[in-house]
Amino acid sequence: MWQLTSIELYKIFRRPRTYISFAAITALIGAVQLGLKVDGQSYVDFMIGSISSLEIEGNILNGYLICYIILQMLLVQVPLLVTLISADMISGEANMGTLRLVLTKPFSRTQWLLSKFFAASIYTLLLLTWMACMALFGSMLIFGTDDMMLLKSSYIVILDDTDVFWRYVGAFGFAAVSMVAVAALGFLLSIFSENSIGPIVTTMSIIVFLTVLSTMNIPFYNYIRPYLFVTHMNNWKEFFDVQVNAENQSLTGTIQNSSRIINSIIVLLLHIVAFVGAAVVIFKKKDITT
C-alpha cells in the first residue's frame, strides 16, 4: 500500500503544476504580510472603528492576528488548490491514457485507488503545513506575538498570548480534515471524467454553491445548513473562542463550543468516508474504455 502511495506521491511531485499551489500560497501570504506591514494601522483603525466606545491598547496587529486574517482569506482559496490535484488524480490518468496501462498491472484497484487518495491527502497536508509555516511562523517572525484580539460578530475575544499557539495547532488540524474532505469530493468526481477540467470545475462549483447556501441567512436554508459539509469547514474558528466563568473572565485553555468542533469533525470525516467509499465502489466496477 505504502509502495503504491509513494509512487503516486512521486508522480504528484514530479509535475510542475504541483508547485504552482505552493507558489500561489507563498505569493498570497507574502502579499498580505507585506500589505499589513506597510499599512497595517489603517487596517486596525478600520477594524476597531466599530468599537469606538472602547479604548484599545497594545499590539493588536501581531503575528497571531495576521495568521488568522490570512487563514480566513486563504481557506476559501485553498480548496481550489487542493482540487487542482485531487480532482485530477483519476481523470488525469484517463486523459493521459495511462489509466489502462496502469490498471493492467497486478495490484488491486481498491488498493490503488486508496493509495491515490492517500497521496492526494498527503499533498493537501503538505500544502497546509506550508501554509502554516508561512502564515503562522512567518507572521510570528515578522510581526511578533502578543495577545490576540478577535472581533466576533457580536462580541470581542481577547486571548492571552500564551493561549494562542495550541489553538492554531488545532485550527490547522481541523483545516486539514476539511481540506481532505474537499480532496475526497474532487477525488470522487475525478473517476467520472476523462479530463481534469470537468471534475475541478464541478468540485469548485459545488463548494461555491454550498458555501453560498450555507451563508445565506434564509430560514429555508437554515434547515439544510447543518447537513452541508461546507458549513462545517468554517468551524476551525471555534478554536479561537474561550469559555468564561460567572464573572465573565475568560478561562485560559478552554474552547467555547468544543462540541461544535467535534460535531464538525465527525461530519467531515463521514463525508470523507462516504466520498472515498463511493469512489472505491464505483471505480471497482468501472469499465476502462479510454
Partner: peptide
C-alpha cells in the same frame, strides 16, 4: 447599554455566536 458592538468585519459566518 449604549455601546456599539463590533460589526463582523471578519466575515464570520458563525451562527448562534451570541454569548
Amino acid at each position: 447599554k449604549d455601546y456599539k458592538l463590533p460589526k463582523g468585519i471578519t466575515l464570520e459566518f458563525e451562527e448562534g455566536a451570541k454569548p
